[in-house]
Amino acid sequence: MKVIFLQDVKGKGKKGEIKNVPDGYARNFLFKKGLAVEATPANLKELE
């Protein structure tokens, strides 16, 4: 799953980066803790 990092995550990505991460990791950790959002067209547009 492609995500946009909202904060630096040690060993995974830095704020503003767009990266592919495993689905479970994204849903169960990154999204729940507010560290990233899914890289949807709407979210990508907001990032610009």
Rank of each mutant, 00 (worst) to 15 (best):
F31I: 12
V21S: 02
D23F: 14
K10A: 13
K10Q: 12
Y25H: 05
A36L: 02
F29E: 09
V3I: 09
L44Y: 06
Y25R: 05
P41K: 11
R27D: 04
K12E: 11
K15T: 09
K32Y: 08
G13Y: 13
F31Q: 02
G24P: 10
V21Q: 05
D8K: 04
A36W: 01
L44W: 06
G34W: 05
F31T: 03
V9L: 06
E38Q: 10
I4R: 04
F31A: 02
M1Y: 06
L44S: 05
V9D: 01
G13S: 03
L44I: 14
R27N: 09
K32F: 07
L44H: 07
N28G: 11
L6E: 00
E38I: 09
K32Q: 10
K19H: 10
P41W: 12
D8A: 07
Q7P: 00
V9M: 04
Q7V: 15
V9I: 09
A36D: 00
N28P: 01
K32G: 06
P22D: 12
G34F: 10
F31V: 07
L47F: 15
A39Y: 12
I4S: 01
A36E: 00
A36T: 00
V3F: 00
L47G: 06
N28F: 12
K12S: 14
K14T: 09
L35E: 02
F29N: 06
L6D: 00
E17T: 06
M1K: 08
V37N: 03
G13E: 01
A26G: 04
I4A: 03
Y25W: 11
G11K: 05
K12Y: 15
E38L: 11
E17I: 03
V21K: 00
K10I: 10
D23A: 15
A26V: 07
P22N: 11
F5Q: 00
M1P: 04
L44T: 08
F31G: 01
G13M: 02
V9S: 02
F5M: 04
G16V: 00
Y25N: 05
G11S: 06
K10H: 11
K32D: 07
P41L: 13
I4V: 07
P22S: 12
P41S: 12
N43G: 04
G16L: 04
L35F: 10
V21Y: 06
L44R: 06
N20F: 15
R27K: 13
K19N: 04
L35G: 01
A36V: 06
G11I: 02
V21M: 12
K10G: 09
L44P: 04
E17M: 06
K14H: 10
V3N: 00
N28H: 11
A36Q: 00
D23W: 15
N20L: 15
K10M: 13
G34T: 03
V37H: 03
I18H: 03
K15P: 04
P22Y: 07
D8E: 08
F29A: 05
N28V: 08
K10N: 10
D8F: 08
E48A: 14
K14P: 01
V21I: 07
A39H: 06
L30Y: 03
K12G: 14
N28D: 14
M1W: 05
G34R: 10
E38S: 07
Y25M: 08
K15D: 02
K10W: 14
Q7S: 09
A42M: 07
T40H: 06
K2N: 12
G11R: 05
R27Y: 12
Q7Y: 14
G24D: 15
I4F: 08
A26Q: 05
A26P: 01
Q7K: 15
V37D: 02
R27P: 03
P41R: 09
G24R: 14
L47T: 07
I4N: 00
A26Y: 10
N20W: 15
N43I: 11
Y25T: 05
K10S: 12
D23M: 15
E38P: 13
K2Q: 14
L44D: 05
G24S: 14
V37A: 05
E17P: 00
A39K: 02
E48N: 14
G13R: 01
G11L: 05
D8H: 09
D8I: 03
E38D: 04
L44V: 11
N43A: 13
R27W: 10
D23H: 13
E38M: 10
N43F: 10
E38R: 10
N20E: 15
P22M: 08
K33A: 12
I4K: 05
K10Y: 14
G11P: 03
K12D: 06
T40N: 10
D8Y: 09
K32R: 12
G13W: 13
K32V: 14
K33P: 02
L30R: 00
L6G: 01
N20Y: 15
L35K: 03
A26N: 03
I18L: 08
K33G: 08
A39F: 11
M1A: 04
A36P: 01
K45M: 13
E38V: 07
F5A: 00
Q7N: 09
L35N: 01
L44Q: 07
F5Y: 08
L30H: 00
E46V: 12
L35D: 01
E17F: 03
E48T: 14
K19W: 08
N20P: 07
L35I: 06
I18P: 01
L47S: 07
L30N: 00
P41N: 10
K32M: 12
E48G: 14
K14Y: 12
K14I: 09
A42F: 10
A42S: 12
A42R: 09
K45L: 13
V21E: 03
N43T: 10
K45H: 11
V3A: 01
D23G: 13
T40K: 05
L6H: 02
K19I: 11
P22L: 08
L47R: 07
Y25V: 07
N43R: 07
G34K: 11
V21P: 00
K19E: 03
E46S: 10
K33M: 15
D8N: 10
E46I: 10
E46P: 07
F5G: 01
G24V: 12
P22V: 07
K32L: 13
A36N: 01
L47A: 08
K14M: 11
F31K: 03
G34Y: 08
F5N: 01
F31R: 00
F31L: 13
V37M: 12
K2L: 15
T40P: 05
I4M: 08
I18K: 03
P41Q: 12
G34A: 08
Q7A: 13
D23I: 15
K19G: 07
K19L: 13
K2I: 14
M1S: 04
K45T: 09
P22E: 11
G34M: 09
F31D: 02
